[in-house]
Design a binder for these strands. Structure first.
Length: 456
DNA sequence: ATACATACC
DNA sequence: TACTGGTATGTAT
C-alpha cells in the first residue's frame, strides 16, 4: 500500500526493535483514514506511483546497446570518482540521543522511566526511548501517539534549556575542533584530524583504553599492528591516521569527548567516525543510543560496510526516493552500484552522481561552517480562514517577524515567497523577484500582499 | 524565473 | 477534534 509507506513508521530508525510494526501501522492508519491529511497523502502517493510508472516504462524499452553504452559511461565515471576518494581526514558526526526528551528527563526526575513526548496534541518533536517502544516517533501527531501509548506524557518544549545544553555540548566539541559545523541543537560534524596530529604521547596515555571503546575488528587488527599502540607513525614521524591503529586512536579520542559531554550535561551523545560526512553520519546511527562507530579509512572496508546498507540510511534518500528505487529492485548500495547503467539512463545527471557517490562512500569531508544562508522566513498553521482581511493580517504578521529577523541579522533579500496551505493540505507557493535587495518591512509587506491577492 | 517536491532536524 | 516550522536543494516547465 503506497500510502502506508508514506505514513507508517520507518523501520530502520533507532528504537524500533521492540515495536510491533503491524499493530502500530494499523493504529496509525485507522486514526488517519478519512481525514483530509490522509486524503492528501493518498494524492501524493498516487503522484509518486505515476512517476514510478513513467520510469518503468522508460526502463522497459531500453535497448541492450543503450544499456551497454550507459554501463561504459558509468564505469568511467566510477574510475573518475575513485580518483577523488579522500581517506585522509578523520570526520566525526555527533548526535545527541533523543535530545529534547533527554534534557527533560534530566531536569524532571519524576519523569524518568516513563514514556514522554516533547510537543503537544498536534505534533511531537521528540519521543523518549521509553515512548519509542510503543511506536511513538518524532514528527508524529500527539493524538496518534497517545493512542499508541495511553500513558504517554506530553511535555511542552523548553527551548532555552535545549539551547543551554547545546552550548555545553558545543563547548566540549570546540576543544577537539574549533571549526566544527553544527547542524542543529543536537547534531554536529567535526574534523579531528589536526587535533589528533597534535596529541602528545602524554595526551594519548590519558585516553580511555581501546578495548572499552571500539568494535572487535578495530580492536584486534589495531592491536596486531607492528608499532606501539597509539603511536603509529609514517616515515616522516607524523602520526598516520588512516591506518587501523590511527582509527583506533580516533575511537579513543571520540570516546573521551563523549564522556566529557556526558559529564558536563548528563546527556548521552552517539558518534560516527569515518573519512567523510556521509559515512560519519551513517555511523553515528549504528550504535545509538550512547554508542559510537568507527569505519576504517579503507576503500574495501567502506564498500563492505555499504554493500548491504539500505538506501534509506543514506542521507538525502527519504521515503519517496526509497520507494522509487525499491520499485526498480534497488534496496541497498550494492544494488545501486550494480544498476548504475539503469540509473544513468533513468535519472538526472545530478541524481546519478549522488547515487554513485553514495554507493561508493565518496562524499564531502568539509566540516567548515556554511558560508551564508540563502533564505529566511516564518510560517504558521492556523484554523480555517476565509475572510480576506484575516488572511492579510496573518500575512502581515509573518512579514513583520521576518523583517525583524532580517534586521537583527543584518540580512537583505531580493525574492519574496508566499506559502499558502489549504485545509486539504495542498501547498501553494508564489514568489516575486524585487528590483533590489532589501530588508525594508513595508516593501516586503507590499510584495507579500500582492502575491496573496493574486490567489484570492 | 517560477512552482512544486523532497529531505533534513 | 487534532498532522509543525525553518532551511536547503532537486525537478519540471
Amino acid at each position: 500500500d503506497a500510502v502506508l509507506s508514506r505514513i507508517s513508521l520507518c523501520p530502520h530508525k533507532a528504537g524500533m526493535d521492540s515495536v510491533n510494526k503491524n499493530k502500530t501501522d494499523e493504529v496509525i492508519r485507522s486514526m488517519s483514514e478519512g481525514s483530509r491529511f490522509y486524503d492528501n497523502e493518498r494524492r501524493k502517493a498516487a503522484q509518486t506511483a505515476q512517476r514510478v510508472q513513467v520510469m518503468k516504462s522508460r526502463a522497459a524499452v531500453l535497448s541492450t546497446g543503450a544499456l551497454q553504452q550507459a554501463e561504459a559511461m558509468a564505469s568511467a565515471f566510477e574510475r573518475q570518482l575513485e580518483t577523488e576518494r579522500d581517506l585522509s581526514r578523520v570526520i566525526v558526526h555527533c548526535d545527541a540521543d533523543a535530545f529534547y526528551a533527554a534534557v527533560e528527563l534530566r531536569d524532571q526526575p519524576h519523569l524518568r522511566g516513563k514514556p514522554i513526548g516533547i510537543g503537544g496534541i498536534g505534533m511531537l518533536s521528540t519521543a523518549s526511548y521509553e515512548a519509542r517502544k510503543f511506536g511513538v516517533r518524532s514528527a508524529m501527531p500527539g493524538y496518534i501517539a497517545l493512542r499508541l501509548c495511553p500513558e504517554l506524557i506530553l511535555v511542552k518544549p523548553r527551548f532555552h534549556a535545549y539551547e543551554a545544553a547545546s552550548r555545553q555540548l558545543q563547548a566540549v566539541m570546540a576543544q577537539y575542533d574549533p571549526n566544527f559545523r553544527s547542524v542543529s541543537l543536537d547534531e554536529a560534524y567535526l574534523d579531528i584530524t589536526d587535533y589528533m596530529a597534535r596529541l602528545t604521547p602524554g595526551d594519548v596515555a590519558q585516553l580511555p583504553p581501546l578495548t572499552t571503546v571500539a568494535d572487535p575488528p578495530l580492536v584486534q587488527e589495531a592491536n596486531s599492528a607492528d608499532s606501539k599502540p597509539g603511536m603509529a607513525t609514517d616515515s616522516a614521524g607524523a602520526r598516520n591516521l588512516t591506518t587501523l591503529e590511527g582509527r583506533a586512536l580516533a575511537a579513543r579520542v571520540v570516546h573521551q569527548m563523549r564522556t566529557r559531554m556526558h559529564e558536563t550535561t548528563q546527556l548521552t551523545v552517539s558518534a560516527g567516525i569515518a573519512c567523510n560526512r556521509m559515512l560519519a553520519k551513517i555511523g553515528s546511527d549504528q550504535n545509538k543510543p550512547d554508542g559510537q562507530f568507527c569505519l576504517p579509512a579503507d576503500r574495501a572496508a567502506i564498500l563492505a560496510f555499504l554493500a548491504n546498507m539500505p538506501t534509506r540510511k543514506i542521507p538525502g534518500i527519504g521515503k519517496v526516493t526509497e520507494q522509487i528505487l525499491r520499485e526498480l529492485d534497488i534496496t541497498n548500495c550494492q544494488a545501486l552500484l550494480q544498476q548504475r547503467a539503469l540509473l544513468k539512463l533513468l535519472f538526472t545527471p545530478i541524481s546519478f552522481d549522488f547515487f554513485m557517490r553514495s554507493a561508493l562512500g565518496i562524499a564531502s569531508n568539509n566540516t567548515r561552517k556554511r558560508s551564508e544562508r540563502k533564505s529566511i522566513g516564518h510560517e504558521t498553521t492556523f484554523r480555517e480562514l476565509n475572510q480576506v482581511p484575516d488572511l492579510e493580517d496573518k500575512c502581515l504578521h509573518l512579514c513583520h517577524k521576518t523583517a525583524l529577523d532580517m534586521e537583527r541579522k543584518a540580512l537583505l533579500g531580493r525574492s519574496v515567497c508566499l506559502k499558502l496551505k489549504t485545509v486539504d493540505f495542498k501547498v501553494k507557493q508564489r514568489s516575486v523577484l524585487l528590483p533590489a535587495h532589501t530588508a525594508d518591512e513595508p516593501v516586503i509587506k507590499r510584495a507579500a500582499l500582492g502575491l496573496l491577492h493574486r490567489e484570492l
